[in-house]
Amino acid sequence: MEDSRIVQLYWDRNEQAIPATSEKYGNYCAPIARNILGNSEDTEECVNDTYLHAWNAMPPHRPAVLSTFLGKITRNLSFNRYQHNTAQKRGGGETMVVLDELAEIVSDTERVEQVVDRRELVRAMNGFLGRLPSGKRSIFICRYWYFDSISDIALRFGKTENHISVILNRLRKKLHDYLCERGFEL
């Protein structure tokens, strides 16, 4: 079913919207949740919650790209669940390793006087990503947006795991420098 038709089902408050979404995008959302959470029970719950959130968001929202709209909800829900689980000492997928890598970009401390404008930060991130060749940009996003494992990314892009790690390492350093040059105190 076309995306516009699925979105219209939500707008019509037609419950067929949920199975239509699940059929088309279940296999897109589930790996995102699984990468973050690392267990099938939480994954299933987060994917189901994704549809509920989509139901609550549409209307009034009309997403331009349905796949990434749903993916973003899944990512947010899964990440929240991960943080909840971590507080209760329950492990989770790739997230801990991914976060440790991201710690190279930020100070990983919470300073009261430090207020970062999130919208400006996203804009700067987009500026950085926009300057990368599409291949490297996609590798970076696979790792830090989709939480894909290094081995999965290596397989997808036909490179060795070591090569992917080197690319990511350099890109993290570049992003850190890029943001610092633009005055972000991370």
């Binding site: 991201l102 987009n126 990503l129």
Partner: peptide, 15 residues
């Protein structure tokens, strides 16, 4: 990591 979730969705789709 949360903020990174808000990047341009076209890049996300492209990946």
């Amino acid at each position: 990591c949360e903020v990174f979730g808000g990047i341009n969705e076209n890049y996300v789709k492209e990946a």
